[in-house]
């Protein structure tokens, strides 16, 4: 049996008397596109911060790409890519400067950086402009490619398509599929419920706990709803 790309057991995080993440457990298989859904304040960001080694759990454990998120944070950082809507690239650097910067941070050699830079410019159809001048959609596609620059085993995407036009949003998902076909595990959050249907499996988090997890098809028939949007409305706000 192959080892899961992400393995989470009873992961918990408290802030004072408040339990932000309450004993969550799940596995994500290599090459899987996993949608991590929940309302604002459900605990998604806290969970992601623990998985990428930025926040220590109060209890429980998690392994990402085979490494422990508490004891092996350094190894994990080499094995993961991360992008969010808020922080991705440096706007006052050019496309190539950003790629060189991140390549350097991830420990790639000059030759590798040059090779991957030109491949990236070509596949995204970009010139070497200042990143701040790019339209949001192109910026987000570039940020995703940069997050994959060091060929990580797992990539975390925190609302990557917020505010992006509907065509670019779909092109972005095609990049996700292509990465997953290549074996990269994709862990993604979104507020667009149609995008939840594009994931291999999804989980829905409510008040720090994972209340349901499965393929979109399984969950729709289990909860007897026509869409994931309807399921989200049903579960995310218990009356």
């Amino acid at each position: 049996m192959t080892e899961p790309a992400i393995a989470v057991r009873d992961l918990t995080r408290r802030f004072g008397g408040f339990t932000a993440v309450d004993s969550i457990s799940f596995d994500v298989a290599p090459g899987e596109v996993f949608g991590f859904l929940g309302a604002n304040g459900a605990g998604k960001t806290t969970a992601i911060r623990m998985l990428i080694g930025l926040l220590a759990p109060t209890s429980g454990e998690a392994r990402v790409a085979g490494f422990d998120v508490v004891k092996q944070t350094e190894q994990i950082r080499h094995q993961i890519g991360y992008m969010s809507q808020r922080f991705s690239l440096y706007e006052d650097l050019t496309v190539l400067e950003n790629i060189a910067l991140y390549g350097g941070i991830y420990g790639l050699g000059a030759e590798q950086i040059a090779e991957r830079s030109s491949a990236m410019l070509q596949s995204l159809g970009l010139a070497d402009d200042l990143v701040g001048r790019l339209p949001l959609g192109r910026k987000q596609k570039l940020a995703f490619s940069v997050a994959l620059l060091h060929e990580p085993a797992v990539v975390f995407l925190d609302e990557p398509t917020g505010g992006v036009d509907p065509i670019t949003r779909r092109q972005f998902w095609e990049l996700i599929y292509a990465a997953a076909e290549g074996g990269t595990t994709v862990f993604v959050t979104t507020h667009y419920m149609d995008e939840a249907e594009y994931c291999d499996r999804i989980s829905i988090m409510v008040d720090g706990r994972i209340v349901t997890l499965g393929t979109p098809q399984e969950l729709k028939s289990k909860w007897d709803v026509p869409t994931i949007d309807a399921l989200f409305v049903k579960l995310a706000r218990p009356a």
Binding site: A39, N40, E159, G162, H191, D229, F232
Partner: peptide
């Protein structure tokens, strides 16, 4: 409603 979850948006 930007960045707000589907339930709060509604």
């Amino acid at each position: 409603t930007t960045g707000v979850d589907a339930v709060s948006r509604s």
